[in-house]
Design a protein around this nucleic acid. Structure first.
Length: 890
RNA sequence: GGGCGGCUAGCUCAGCUGGGAGAGCAUCGGCCUUACAAGCCGAGGGUCACAGGUUCAAGCCCUGUGCCGCCCACCA
């Protein structure tokens, strides 16, 4: 049993211990485990699986904070909630990491051999692969950690094989010799979208290609002279007069003795360079296609390590492709083939993993025919089964899908899902099976060799939404949680991953994998620069969490969700929000001083709000509004609105006004007033903790745990629902009046430099009897909050001379200052006000004088303008009077 | 070459279907007022990039221009 004193939380919020404690408690309680109860709505998310090699960066922190907010919200709403965690085996990235490790021991993967190497990778994964999962847990991510998946798990591997085999049988997977993007460093084929194009300043070389009979020459332009060695033709436009006569003439390829033909192809741009294009079918995508159209032979001169091969000729064989370029240029120049060299800017493809310049190469690879799959995905977005947020991505999505090419899925690396295809050594049959075949179904031979290639990592992540739920088995998880509710990710993997999940989900589940896609921005440093280790501008979320607390970081990231493309993160901001967390902590501490000993039944006073004093009716009404706003914003993924609504309410309304106002009651000798204040205070605090919990789970859970009464975990308590009886517009309006009066008096005090401890008098003139009564009723409270000795309220009467004046709407506030009025300052202040009112009046009067406005505007708009005018007129009159009076004082 | 996003207070950004320009931070002035100086009270600060147009009414809708940034693309 806790003693009351222990319940009075420590003076500053010490997050380190608190966070550790709740991480353990939540874990032990099993409160994050998925529930699958009949008759409840389901809400599920699959985590974008971070690379198993990854360490948590700010992007992950943002991404997972947003997911956690939704998950915690829906869990508290009582939905069947599932958040599936896991990691991606990240083929190339992981293989690179382990290869580097081997390199330190002076070994290569070839030294080990395939099986031993893969063994090594699994060892590595065992030791270090769990890091990011621990880091996500530290973030407070409320995943069902018992369900952690890995794309190389047995279950997921089974799904991968199943999908591969089915697509193959449907004719949607095929093997063929086509041109692909090749990374000479990673030593593997890459998909089109794994190649990043980067504008670079290069050179355009103009080279003479003499006629075979020596009667003339054609000049071609190229950025890659080394590929000259692999040319098998020159192409010109069929309508190009300059080259018509070349149909029968062969060209002698410089530096070689080969004679190559001239072909005529529409693709050639007559305006570019000389209008003659050298064709290297084996090392350029366009040339490859031109070659196909004209049956040109393919000649591969660069090997898979980026080194020139035998076919390049003995002078060049063994040279790196870039060294070869220099040598080719040198020789061309020496032999008089080089006409000139121009500076030229062009886009060069790079491997997205290692940034090496990629090499287009013909190669035997496996492909997915994506057209039919892509069509299904496009249809799902078009007819609204999937909604992309923000919708500005729709067009980009469509245009990408329209231009999609077949997906090269084979990778020449070792770490990954090995392609389930075997070749029969005896009859040459290709066997594709989900289980390893023992003998050839055609000739019954047992000498079968499996493909050595593995699948593109994105192939397995494309299945993630259903493979993690046990597919191809018809599991209860699939029945309950598929399709998932929303996929939250940054826009940069919309095509790599999101689009492919759509294709696979629709094809194999016959249902979308998620109903919504929420795309958030990329996190940059405070200058908008990409964070990178070499620039040294990386903000490490773990360091931030250690310094400011996890809740502060989560709260900082939440408002950024709204931002379009990039987020400029400045650590100063995190510090600002730490202050907010601390504010909440202290407000709770204050509340506990008054409610720690209460029975939970004190909160029953809110059942009849109409019987409560104004300030309580006001805060309850504002709380109801807050609940409404927060729920709606959460339902619409407006995370920034969730954060700011909470922030404004807690700091400005609850702390600055409500807590200050009820101090009198809490300390007073009036049992009823005290009980009412305690009951409402506790209610509002409980509500706020619940509303904040999805964003800041730790501090709210901690405060919750020390509130009076036996409590279940906040994480599984119920999310607030709007109580209609709390809504009270009249109370809100009346409180606003009182707050306006208080602000006015405070303003006078501050402007007149009246010391805060000095008690002074004030007079309020309010012609409207109802409002005058309201002000008078709360004279004590107003005096309390503004340190008045006497507050007089009158409907009409003499304006005191020698007093500072403040006009609130049409209400005049006077503070007599006995000769201390700074006339010049007063006049300046009044004049400032008058200018503002004048400007607004001009607008309003302009509208009301406009017949077309009166004729066209909606009735309520006109009524609004009229009311506005009335108020401004009244205020203006009072301001003018005040100005006149002060002048006379001088 | 296409496409997309941004331009609102000194800074970072909100501003939903068009009807009196907002927040946080920063700035200035005053306060240790019994939860919080990581705080309280008060104040100042904006031709909403520019030019046209639609409308009774435009930060918001349309057209164009200018910067800044991103994505896609087979001019070698």
């Amino acid at each position: 049993m806790k003693t009351p004193d222990e319940k009075l939380l420590s003076k500053g919020y010490e997050f380190a211990e608190v966070e550790q404690k709740w991480l353990e408690n939540w874990q032990q309680s099993g409160c994050f485990a998925a529930t699958m109860e009949e008759g409840r709505p389901a809400f599920s998310i699959v985590i974008p699986p971070p690379n198993v090699t990854g360490v948590l960066h700010v992007g992950h922190a943002l991404n997972n904070t947003l997911q956690d907010i939704l998950i915690r919200y829906h869990r508290m709403c009582g939905d069947n909630t599932l958040w599936v965690p896991g990691t991606d085996h990240a083929g190339i990235a992981t293989q690179n990491v382990v290869e580097r490790q081997l390199a330190e021991e002076g070994k290569t993967r070839d030294d080990l051999g395939r099986e031993a190497f893969i063994e090594k990778v699994w060892e590595w994964r065992q030791e270090k692969g769990g890091r990011i999962i621990n880091q996500l847990q530290k973030l407070g991510a409320s995943c069902d950690w018992e369900r952690e998946r890995f794309t190389m798990d047995e279950g997921l591997s089974r799904a991968v094989r199943e999908v591969f085999v089915r697509l193959y049988r449907e004719g949607l997977i095929y093997k063929g010799d086509y041109i692909v993007n090749w990374c000479p460093r990673c030593h593997t084929a890459l998909a089109d979208d794994e190649v990043e194009h980067e504008e670079q300043q290069g050179k355009l070389y103009h080279i003479r290609y003499p006629y075979a009979d020596g009667s003339g020459e054609v000049v071609v332009a190229t950025t890659r002279p080394e590929t000259t060695l692999g040319d098998t033709g020159v192409a010109v436009h069929p309508d190009d007069e300059r080259y018509r006569h070349l149909a029968e003439i062969g060209l002698r390829l410089p530096l070689t003795e080969r004679v190559i033909p001239v072909v005529f192809d529409q693709h050639v741009d007559r305006e570019f360079g000389t209008g003659a294009l050298k064709v290297t079918p084996s090392h350029d995508r366009n040339d490859y296609e031109i070659g196909l159209r004209h049956s040109l032979p393919r000649l591969k001169v660069i090997d898979d390590k980026g080194i020139m091969n035998q076919a390049a000729g003995s002078d060049y064989c063994g040279l790196d492709r870039f060294a070869c370029r220099m040598k080719v240029v040198e020789n061309l120049d020496r032999l008089g083939f080089l006409v000139r060299v121009e500076e030229h800017q062009h886009a060069v493809g790079h491997c997205y993993r290692c940034k090496t310049v990629s090499e287009p190469t013909t190669s035997l690879q496996w492909f997915v025919a994506v057209r039919p799959l892509a069509d299904k995905a496009v249809a799902a977005v078009r007819d609204g089964r999937i909604t992309i947020h923000p919708k500005s991505w729709n067009n980009t999505f469509y245009s990408w899908m329209d231009n999609i090419r077949d997906w090269c899925i084979s990778r020449q690396i070792w770490w990954g899902h090995r392609i389930p295809a075997w070749t029969c050594a005896d009859c040459g049959a290709l066997i594709v099976e989900s289980t390893d075949p023992v003998r050839c179904p055609t000739c019954a031979s047992t000498s079968l060799t499996q493909e050595t290639d593995v699948l593109d990592t994105w192939f397995s992540s494309a299945l993630w939404p259903f493979s993690t739920m046990g597919w191809p088995q018809p599991t209860r998880e699939l029945a309950t949680f598929y399709p998932t509710a929303v996929l939250i990710t940054s826009f940069d993997i919309l095509f790599f991953w999101v689009a492919r999940m759509m294709m696979m989900g629709l094809h194999f589940m016959d249902e979308v994998p998620f109903r919504d896609v929420y795309l958030h921005a990329l996190v940059r440093d405070k200058h908008g620069k990409k964070m990178s280790k070499s620039t040294g501008n990386v903000i490490d979320p773990l360091a931030v969490m250690a310094e400011y607390g996890t809740d502060a970081m989560r709260f900082t990231l939440t408002p950024f969700a709204a931002q379009g493309r990039e987020i400029k993160l400045d650590e100063e901001r995190i510090e600002g929000y730490r202050h907010f967390i601390n504010k909440l902590w202290n407000a709770a501490r204050f509340a506990l001083m008054h409610v720690a000993h209460c029975q939970p039944s004190v909160t029953e006073v809110v059942l009849k709000p109409q019987e409560l004093p104004l300030v309580h009716r006001w805060i309850l009404s504002r709380t109801a509004t807050l609940i409404r706003e927060v729920r709606l914003a959460l339902d619409e993924y407006r995370f920034n609105d969730v954060a700011s609504a909470n922030y404004q309410f807690i700091w400005r309304e609850f702390c600055d006004w409500y807590l200050e106002w009820i101090k009198a009651d809490l300390f007073a000798d009036n049992q009823q007033a005290q009980d009412q204040a305690r009951g409402v205070l506790l209610t509002v605090l409980e509500t706020v903790l619940k509303l904040m919990h999805p964003i800041t789970p730790f501090v709210t859970e901690e405060i919750w745990s020390v509130l009076p009464g036996q409590r279940e975990l906040l994480a599984i308590s119920s999310f607030p629902v709007v109580t209609d009886s709390w809504s009270d517009d009249a109370a809100v309006e009346e409180m606003e009046l009182l707050m306006g009066i208080i602000t006015g008096i405070r303003n006078i005090r501050a402007e007149a430099d009246v010391h805060p401890s000095q008690r002074i008098e004030a007079l309020v003139l309010c012609a409207d009897p109802q409002r005058a009564t309201a002000i008078e009723t709360f004279a004590a409270a107003i005096s309390d909050m503004t340190r008045l000795s006497v507050l007089t309220v009158r409907g009409e009467g003499d304006r005191p001379s020698d007093a500072a004046t403040y006009i609130y709407k049409d209400i005049e506030i006077f503070v007599p200052l006995k000769g201390l009025v700074d006339v010049a300052a007063e006049l300046a202040r009044i004049a400032r006000e008058r200018d503002k009112v004048e400007a607004k009046l001009k607008q309003v009067n302009g509208k009301l004088a406009n017949e077309r406005f009166l004729a066209n505007a909606r009735a309520e708009v006109i009524a609004g303008e009229r009311a506005k005018k009335a108020e401004l007129d009244a205020r203006m009159a009072k301001l003018l009077e005040a100005e006149e009076r002060i002048r006379r004082m001088a």
